[in-house]
């Protein structure tokens, strides 16, 4: 009895949630529509009071001034949000100004922020920030930036990129002319690294999905006992897919993947920055198992091809 009541409550709550979601979508659609905006923006001159009754024949809702203002506010918010979504999806690198709360900060605490938006797996990720200050003095004051704080994970070679594109000015004048800093190229290269990194992570997730790891975990454990892979291969043609038990990134940059098969074979897949497969090594009980490697790749040169292949086989 109690269980059924709980079920009912759960069902109703799910219904409420879905209705709320629908309401939100409808509201958004209505608010974004041009005609709605037009009606809201109509000046409240006396003629409207005259025309309203006629309109209210069709729709008996009359809008008073306060509601109208509220709706207008909401509409403004919505438009701003639309613009933001568009901007985040397209522009992806934004600069902004900030202040260092430290009272002893250099340059009066002026901070230039760089915000990098990444969309991965159809979702906005939390943006990455790089914050610059201008600590240099003399001839370079105000022109040369230095990375002050950042929120990039250590697998992004930020220090190397900064040294390449934002070199520090020389300490003394004898060292010759200072190299120019190029913030645009820095931002470009940095974003490229970040996006590549997330693409690699995404590919790993795709590989796991294509190999059906979540689904087949139980079967894999069951099939662990009979180590005779040859027998299994004859039983089930798509051997490589059914036997994979784990695919995990093996290094910080997710360029190397560890593959594990049910029969204890382990493999290492190395890809380069752009997802091209550099090398795949599979080690079985008796040393290197080239056949399994060929089986898995099937002539693929990119990791995405392997994903497609696994998905087709599975």
């Amino acid at each position: 009895m109690a269980a059924s009541l709980d079920d009912e409550i759960e069902e109703l709550q799910a219904k409420v949630a879905s209705l709320k979601k629908q309401l939100g979508i409808h509201m958004t659609t209505l608010l974004t529509a041009k005609s709605t905006r037009q009606i809201l923006l109509e000046p409240p001159h006396p003629t409207t009071t005259l025309t309203l009754p006629r309109r209210s024949n069709a729709s008996p809702v009359a809008i008073d001034e306060a509601t109208k203002l509220k709706l207008l506010d909401q509409s403004d918010l919505q438009l701003a949000h639309n613009q933001e979504c568009l901007y985040r999806a397209c522009a992806t690198v934004t600069t902004f100004r900030a202040r260092d709360p430290d009272p002893r900060a250099v340059d009066g605490g002026a901070i230039l922020g760089l915000r990098i938006d990444v969309v991965s797996r159809t979702k906005f990720l939390r943006p990455y920030y790089v914050l610059f200050n201008r600590p240099y003095s003399g001839a370079y004051a105000g022109r040369y930036l230095r990375v002050h704080r950042h929120t990039l994970p250590p697998c992004i070679p930020l220090a190397g990129l900064a040294a390449r594109y934002l070199p520090a000015p020389p300490k003394d004048d004898s060292a010759g002319p200072a190299k120019q800093q190029d913030l645009a190229r820095f931002a470009h290269a940095l974003r490229r690294e970040v996006v590549r990194y997330h693409h690699r992570l995404g590919v790993v997730a795709d590989l796991r999905k294509a190999a059906g790891l979540a689904r087949r975990r139980k079967d894999a454990e069951g099939g662990d006992e009979d180590g005779e892979e040859d027998v299994e291969e004859h039983d089930k043609p798509p051997t490589a897919t059914t036997q994979l038990v784990d695919i995990t990134p093996a290094d910080a940059e997710a360029k190397q993947l560890t593959l594990e098969w049910t029969d204890g074979r382990v493999g290492r897949l190395v890809m380069d920055d752009d997802g091209e497969i550099v090398k795949l090594v599979v080690l079985g009980e008796n040393g290197r198992d080239r056949e399994a490697g060929r089986d898995l790749l099937g002539g693929a040169t990119r990791v995405e091809d392997v994903v497609r292949r696994l998905a087709a086989l599975g």
């Binding site: 979601k21 939100g24 979508i25 509201m27 958004t28 974004t32 909401q74 918010l77 919505q78 949000h81 639309n82 933001e84 979504c85 568009l86 985040r88 999806a89 902004f96 915000r115 938006d117 969309v119 159809t122 979702k123 906005f124 990720l125 939390r126 943006p127």
Partner: peptide, 17 residues
């Protein structure tokens, strides 16, 4: 930042967060 609220959103979902 204002965009902090938009984490985990899809770019096509225009419902106000």
């Amino acid at each position: 930042k204002r965009g902090e609220g938009g984490v985990g959103q899809t770019p096509l979902d225009l419902v106000l967060p």
